[in-house]
Design a protein around this nucleic acid. Structure first.
Length: 884
DNA sequence: ACCAGTTCCTAC
DNA sequence: TAAGGTAGGAACTGGT
């Protein structure tokens, strides 16, 4: 029976199928349909291939070596090659060349075939493209696809009716014939040809998300109990389950729950490093090495049938596996760790579940009660198991609330939609994969050979953006100008691309009198009439796409459709993220579609543009106070008499308002005057005051246009490794400085430092927190030496070691909070902060140490008002040369 | 008091 | 055997 389904692709995998009539490769797509069902779609018709061409510079693609036929025959004779066909003429960096498409037996033989063909003297292209990704390239598909195919299996009773599964045997026969591996535990299994897959308008898929948490024994490493919450986005329902009893029953219970509820996304807090690792270990212990059925029963979370070959797969199989990569791989599902997502989005000062939850849900009273001492979990479990179980249930549910609150899933979904990849690539993939997705399909459509990823180690750095020296002190009336999408617009404006770089050895040279783009480094590029670059074309498309979504967002707002507003906002933001990642990837040494001169040219143009403008401004008497990469801070020509502090009322306010008006006029005038073609300078902000103590990348300002606000950059208030007593006070100080009350600022600092010396500052305001890396070893210990030259010289490592000694959780890569208890010795003594205990379980901090640090950090700022850190510490000002 | 080296985290 | 970039400030260690 035929059907057409609209669905979002979660992940893809392939099956190597051997049939009587030969071998084929079948693509498996795991999807969530628009109507809420889960699906596996088996796609036939895409066979793996690579492309080959003759080596050397090619002036005329029709001129072929005399023995080309014999050479091609030798390729065809290779046992892994099933066909050799002419592919057509494609652009390469050695000229336009005739290419041949070499059909390959299976994707997994490509690696060895590549070596053989290279030895034979062929130049390879399109030969390290992941097979599954071809599906998206060939028909220009993305995350959301509309597929017409044959139903092989259908679970009935979706709407809560009893599930009646059709005759499994006949379904299995049909699935096997279509190339599937077994009865996938999903609602519908469909077979289709890739010709029957089409683009579908992006939609927000009704995912099912599974979140879980374990409580484990410290003494025996066993699982004591577990809880899981399933969130169904179709119905909005959340259901929580808990498991205790025999360890194997807990694992089996979790596994059954996963298989029954069929989630697309697996989450939890720090599951990457802890819970999944622990389950995997316990599964091995409880099952013995070779008992795959037992393993499947205990940890068969993969969205595949329970089969021996599925349990043996090293990735995308029945059993979750990590391998060498950061992300876990489970067939058909996407692992999204709430810890990692929260860390990236919120950059919290500390990273425990409790801390992040309190940050996001300060009013949730559930978070305040139920304190289980996890360092004494065995004792807690023995004495009050019910409370532990409740606590576990809460910690299973919180990750769902966190993901929802930071919109992690919808953001990743939007990135996937813009980059046209499956959800898992957007969630767990690397930036170059996102770009590859767009670039490879463009290259294919425009006859550009796809080079291989460059296998080189980085040897040298390219020069980056220009940062102007900042003048210490208070500067009134500042206009901030910004280049709009600086690097992308330079790439578009100068047609920068590896396909347009003019290389003297390349047969395609500019015609006489033809204009070319010459970068300040001397690298030249064809103009876009001669040859439009791939990168500029992609970027222009993305710019247009962003405008489309912004327009649609406005329209949706008028219609009052908030869900649609949110959707287009996610989409336009995803486009922005994508555009901004272009430069980084193209400036990297390994990326396939780049050349080392490209990144250096982009930044050279950027430096040239901004320095030219700064020079012109200075020449005409408009002082530039600061500039960083794409922004310029200019003194507006407003009388020194007019105080930047906004008066409450009266004539002063009128004067102030006219100054503001002049600031805006000046900003707009500069923006217009200095914008040139693609290099658009925008008047972004007007500041009534700008302050810096004189260090680059550190400043504050009071914004009065377009809206009244405050901006702080670089200072300790922005840093997640600073402590609250410092950041809170510095924030106050900035506010006072910007209001023109610097004397008050100094006074409160002096008081604070006195309090520190007397140990009167509450200890929870003094927690320092830094990331601590390490490699988790099989025996549970952590090896710090891989990441640190001298691990014990690092305060965070010493704190982490103490945590482990005390059975407090520590996972490499997380921040470790600590208090300095003695700063008079080197290295200083620190105590880890124990979230579960009053005052972090620490008796006394080193007040002098904190007084010193406060004085140093705040002194840098007060120094601008002639209060040095020494004077702050002393609490009074010494008469000195500069006081008079 | 000052140095170089290491590390973290941020601005763009 | 993994893979967006550079510029920059600051804290700390372990020396002199």
């Amino acid at each position: 029976m035929q059907t057409t389904i609209d669905c979002a692709v979660i992940t893809a995998r392939y099956q190597a199928v051997e049939r009587n009539d030969g071998e084929t490769t079948v693509l498996e797509l795991w999807c969530r349909c628009k109507d809420g069902r889960s699906a596996v779609i088996l796609i036939n018709g895409i066979n793996p291939w690579i492309e080959i061409a003759s080596p050397g510079i090619c002036e005329n693609p029709e001129e072929l070596p005399h023995d080309i036929l014999a050479k091609l025959q030798r390729v065809l004779d290779d046992s892994d090659v099933i066909s050799v066909d002419e592919e057509g003429i494609k652009w390469t960096d050695m000229g336009e060349k005739k290419h041949w498409r070499v059909g390959v037996r299976q994707p997994f033989v490509v690696r060895s075939l590549r070596d053989r063909l290279q030895k034979e003297g062929w130049v390879l292209s399109a030969s390290d493209i992941v097979y599954q990704h071809r599906f998206f390239h060939i028909r220009d598909l993305g995350t959301h696809v509309s597929i017409r195919g044959d139903i092989l299996f259908e679970k009935e009773g979706i709407d809560g009716k009893e599930c009646v599964i059709e005759d499994d045997f006949s379904a299995l026969t049909k699935i096997k014939t279509a190339g599937g591996s077994g009865i996938y535990p999903v609602d519908i299994i469909v077979s289709a040809n890739y010709d029957d897959c089409n683009q579908c308008e992006p939609f927000q898929a009704p995912w099912t998300v599974f979140s879980f948490d374990l409580e484990t024994s410290i003494l025996h490493d066993t699982v004591l109990c577990a809880a899981a919450t399933i969130e169904n986005w179709s119905t909005g329902e959340r259901t929580t389950y808990s498991f205790n009893g025999k360890e194997e029953d807990i694992l089996i219970g979790l596994t059954d729950l996963v298989r029954e509820n069929d989630p697309d996304i697996i989450t939890g807090y720090n599951i990457d490093n802890f819970d999944l690792t622990r389950l995997s270990e316990r599964c091995e212990v409880l099952s013995g090495k070779r008992r795959w059925r037992r393993q499947a029963e205990l940890f068969g979370w993969g969205r595949v049938d329970i089969l021996e070959n599925e349990s043996k797969r090293r990735r995308d199989g029945l059993l979750p596996k990590r391998g060498n990569t950061r992300a876990w791989s489970i067939a058909g599902r996407c692992v999204m760790d709430a810890w990692w997502q929260a860390r990236m989005t919120l950059r919290p000062k500390r990273e425990t579940l409790k801390f992040v939850s309190n940050l996001l849900f300060p009013d949730n009273i559930e978070l305040q009660k139920m304190d289980i001492d996890s360092s004494k979990m065995d004792e807690e479990w023995a004495t009050r198991p019910e409370e532990v179980l409740k606590y576990c249930e809460r910690d299973a549910e919180l990750p769902l609330s966190i993901l929802r609150s930071i919109q992690a899933v919808r953001r990743k979904e939007a990135i996937a939609a813009v980059a046209k990849t499956s959800l898992d690539v957007a969630a767990n993939g690397v930036t170059s994969q996102l770009l590859d997705s767009l670039a490879i399909r463009y290259a294919d459509a425009n006859d550009i050979a796809v080079p291989m990823t460059h296998n080189v180690r980085r040897t040298s750095h390219i020069e980056g953006g220009y940062v102007h020296d900042v003048e210490a002190g208070i500067h009134p009336w500042i206009t901030v100008l910004d280049f709009k999408s600086m690097y992308p617009s330079i790439m578009i404006g100068n047609n920068i691309c590896f396909t347009t770089r003019i290389d003297p050895i390349h047969p395609d040279q500019p015609l006489k009198d033809e204009t070319i783009h010459t970068s300040p480094t001397g690298v030249t590029f064809h103009n876009s009439q001669h040859r439009k670059g791939m990168v500029p074309a992609l970027l222009e498309h993305l710019m247009g796409l962003r405008d489309t979504h912004k327009e649609a967002m406005k329209e949706a707002r008028i219609q009052g459709d908030e869900a649609l507003v949110a959707f287009h906002d996610q989409m336009q933001y995803a486009v922005k993220i994508m555009m901004n990642s272009f430069y980084g990837v193209f400036a990297s040494v390994f990326y396939r579609f780049t050349h080392k001169d490209l990144g250096a040219s982009i930044t050279a143009w950027a430096r040239h543009n901004i320095k030219t403008i700064i020079q012109k401004l200075e020449d005409e008497g408009n002082h530039v106070v600061y500039s960083d990469t794409d922004s310029i801070f200019v003194c507006a020509p407003i009388s020194k008499e007019i105080s930047p502090t906004k008066p409450k009322k009266g004539k002063e306010l009128k004067t102030w308002n006219s100054a503001k008006k002049e600031l805006i006029r000046f900003g707009n005038e500069l923006a217009e005057r200095f914008s040139q073609d693609e290099a658009v300078l925008e008047f972004e902000k007007g500041l009534s005051v700008f302050f810096s103590h004189g260090a680059k990348k550190r400043y504050v300002g009071r914004i009065i246009y377009p809206e009244e606000d405050m901006i702080v950059r670089g200072y300790e208030t922005q840093r997640s490794d600073s402590f609250d007593a410092l950041t809170n006070n510095m924030q106050n100080m900035f506010e006072m400085i910007l209001e023109g009350r610097s004397e008050n600022a100094v006074k409160s600092v002096v008081d604070l430092i006195k309090a520190a010396k007397r140990n009167e500052i509450p200890i929870e305001q003094l927690i320092l927190s830094k990331t601590c890396k390490g490699v988790l070893l099989k025996n549970g210990e952590v090896d710090f030496s891989k990441h640190y030259a001298n691990p014990d010289s690092m305060a965070s490592v010493r704190a982490a070691k103490k945590r482990m000694e005390r059975n407090l959780p520590f996972t490499p890569g997380m921040k470790v909070g600590f208090i300095v208890t003695n700063g008079k010795v080197s290295p200083m003594e620190v105590e880890p902060w124990d979230e579960g205990q009053e005052n972090g379980g620490i008796a006394k901090y080193d007040g002098d140490f904190y007084a010193e640090r406060l004085a140093t950090a705040l002194g840098r700022i007060t120094e601008a008002f002639e209060w040095s850190s020494k004077e702050l510490l002393a609490g009074n000002r010494q008469a000195n040369l500069f006081s008079f």
